[in-house]
Nucleic acid binder design. Structure first.
Lengths: 218, 218, 218, 218
DNA sequence: GATGAATGAGAATTCATTCAT
DNA sequence: CATGAATGAATTCTCATTCAT
């Protein structure tokens, strides 16, 4: 139950890298946030960049893992996309720190680390690409530029991490439902088919993969 | 016609702030990129932050200016939104440096500068808000969360600056047309109404406001 | 018979101080070399400097001890010098670590420790001085600057620790015999008188004082 | 005539690296010795290691240069060796800082820098090797281990930098003459042939190559 | 006897910025 | 207009050492 120092270091890094950027965050800032001396920090991390890499790869692996779990057993492209969007939005809403770091700090990585991170990101985006192409092939999505559409929708959904607050009036289920609806419309898919239980299912997956309690009412 | 040193400094800052972030860019990087000594830089700028503020406010003022010029004389909410999206996408495609800096470096600003920049950004987003609400009021757009939808669409359209390349196969008109279509669909508006001449008109406005030559074929 | 942790610490220090210098060797390097945690090191040593002082004083005491043992019972200055050189060269060849530390790291000592170490070194060099002066007085050595000659010969003989390898083609007896011959020549002494049994005798002394097995064939 | 900051940095480094070793000398020590701030130091150097490399390579190039100049025009192996020893000893006596750094800090270099420095050192030692072998071939030197003898003599002569002081009673010419005599004796060469004008000639070469005034009486 | 955790001090190096020339 | 020289403050990271367990 106790929060270990290692966890505090990681949490501090996620928070500050998300808020001020990798280069905008100093070792002293991390130490202060983690309530450790800056020398002690180095018991729990390699370099500052190692910490960034760990955060990014973990976040992307979780996203991949969660996406796999959430869509498992669903074949219908429409349902699969709804699930993917829902999961993506919920992950970004519940874990805005991690996801913002992934989305914004790729440029801060050294070449070799960037290659590894980008490979993971490409793998994740591949899930989107396949489902969209599937839907187009099945005639349920309509877009003459699937790749452009995919990028547009991904940016749209990731943006949630920049503004959503659990303390605002919008509940997580409403949020994710809304984005699923927007996405289906943009793809010319069957709108109005979004179902609340999909949000709940994805929320459970998020809670499990990120090991975070998710309040039922939220 | 010759490029002045002051312009070189600004161009260097836009390029590097966009590529590596404000905190990731050093004065010496700027000097090297501008082909000046770091001391000479200070003939053409105040502090590093002043340079950032100038870039951001200029970019936002241009966006506001261009949006005003492009939508002038149009009353129909659907046409106005199409124009706004088209302009936004074209600006982000043609000036990805400026726009990425605006979108990503707000956190690097000091409190007072941030307030000024955010005010400008809010003013710009207000244009979107008003048009969307207008369209909803007129029954041409359908969304039960106009504010959320606005944020989603803005993120989607701004994302263009992260990936679009004029050297790729996608021409600027196709790009902006595609995004206009996506936006109208997402809003439940009358899809299929996007017209090519709107793209051309917005492109002219962009060329004029940013004082940039835009190749007709692109 | 098992190697104790204390011995491993000392051996690690000798090896690393010799190879990388006192200031170039970190506590963590020592710990790794000794296969102990850095905290555990401190069960077997005082400060890092204490360790250095211990190594240096032990090495010098052994050299003094060995020199005394090897020359005991010999009165002839020529034979005494041959023995001293032989012993010195063998000690530096067999224990290059210790001797390099003594020769190179005096500057790393604090003032008080340096005084103690230098006193021991002076005592040892006094042995050389007395024998050389003795030989000059007896008319068997010829040099008009005995002190300079002594320094020159000491440096020459100590240099062995910098390059001799037991894995090379040169056997210990050949090595020490060669240096004894060089020394006698430089002193204008009776060359060609070096005898192999002196080398064997000194080798036994070295083996005993340093408690090291010395392969007979080497 | 004025001493530039760059020269002060170099002189400080030579002095402190020689006195306390590379790892024992901090950037702050250098700054204090050079009477500059530690940040200003970096106007005149790359890294601390770059400074070390520059000192070592310059010193070795000068030694090579001086050896070439001093022995030019002399064919007799005995005279050539006398000259080489004289030059070596004088260089070590007049420039003890540089030469001690070269002799003691090779281990502080990174692998690639070490390779370059060692190559220069090997080139210089090659001069000694060739002359000794020459003399042996001509029957004027007698040693059955020329390589070992060369190492022994080099160490002997380099040792001068560790103890010689121009403020002591020993004049430079006496010093170098003495070492030349020792060397010839050790090699079984024609002793008693050392001439004072060789010392003066070498002193001039040293004064020229190192651009240092050498007091005639010293 | 052994060690993970912890740290204040210090390491080398870079920072944005100023100023005399 | 331009810049080499200069620097105090800050950077990331390592140091030798201690101590509770």
């Amino acid at each position: 139950m106790a929060v270990t120092s290692a966890e505090r270091v990681r949490a501090a890094a996620v928070k500050l890298f998300a808020a001020k950027g990798f280069h905008g965050t100093g070792i002293r800032d991390l130490a202060q946030e983690a309530e450790l001396s800056s020398a002690t920090l180095y018991h729990y991390m390699g370099t500052k960049e190692d910490l960034l890499v760990e955060i990014m790869t973990t976040a992307l692996r979780r996203l991949l893992d969660a996406a796999g779990k959430a869509t498992a057993g669903t074949a219908d492209p429409v349902a699969r996309l709804r699930t993917l969007v829902t999961l993506h939005v919920l992950a970004h809403a519940v874990q805005p720190g991690e996801t913002r770091v992934v989305d914004n700090e790729v440029d801060a990585l050294s070449a070799s680390a960037r290659a590894r991170v980008v490979a993971l990101r490409d793998e994740y985006e591949g899930l989107w690409a396949r489902i969209i192409e599937d839907g187009v092939a099945h005639g349920v999505f309509h877009t003459d530029r699937p790749a452009v559409t995919r990028l547009a929708l991904l940016e749209m959904c990731s943006g949630v991490a920049r503004w959503y607050s659990p303390h605002g009036p919008l509940r997580l289920e409403e949020l994710s439902t809304h984005y699923a609806e927007l996405t289906l419309r943009a793809l010319g898919g069957p709108a109005g088919t979004v179902r609340a239980d999909e949000a709940r299912h994805c929320l459970e997956v998020v809670a499990q993969v990120w090991d975070v309690p998710v309040q039922p009412g939220n």
